[in-house]
Amino acid sequence: MSAGTALHFEQHTPRPRCGCKGPGAAGWLSSQGYRVPAEPNSAELDPGGVLVARLATSEFLLEPISGSADRVEATRAELTQRRQPVTVYPVTRQDLVVTINGEELNPLLRQICSVDFAPLLAAAVTGGGPVVLTSMVGVGVVAWPRLIEGAVGESSPAVTLWCEPSYAHYFWHTLLEVGRDLGSVTTGSKQ
């Protein structure tokens, strides 16, 4: 993010991701070596850089936030080929994924969502933490408030959003439109 930028929107859509749900999902993910969050609406970022977000009692989202994507690719293959126990159901995830940061992050969130992210961002950490299932600009999203590392090592609050892909065009362009009202906006895309 360049100096003077009010908001930066980074797309991570191409990253591999997968989901699973079912009564056996938590146990199966643990058996696969993932660090499974104990509570719904929370996430764990394991040492290998894979985010495991618990979206409900028995529903999970996996995505490699940093490091290698191999483990998630392998898990996705297991699910696609139905090699998991019958109590674990695969969930195909083709989401638009966007991380937003910048000085106007909270003002942006206050225009697009009725959830108060300020305390969540104030308490955000670089790994894990709460995930919020909410609606933004009329679209259901999974939101993960967190700290991200900048280019020179400083960390700043950010929120990563997962949005159903059929809303991707509307969601992305609406976020940019609102963001531009708040100041200069930059965009990017990376794995």
């Binding site: 749900k21 079912g22 159901y89 695969p90 969930v91 195909t92 159903e164």
Partner: peptide, 12 residues
């Protein structure tokens, strides 16, 4: 009932 529902509408 012991069922799990998955909505693939936008993902497929």
């Amino acid at each position: 009932l012991s069922v799990g529902l998955v909505n693939l509408t936008g993902h497929y």
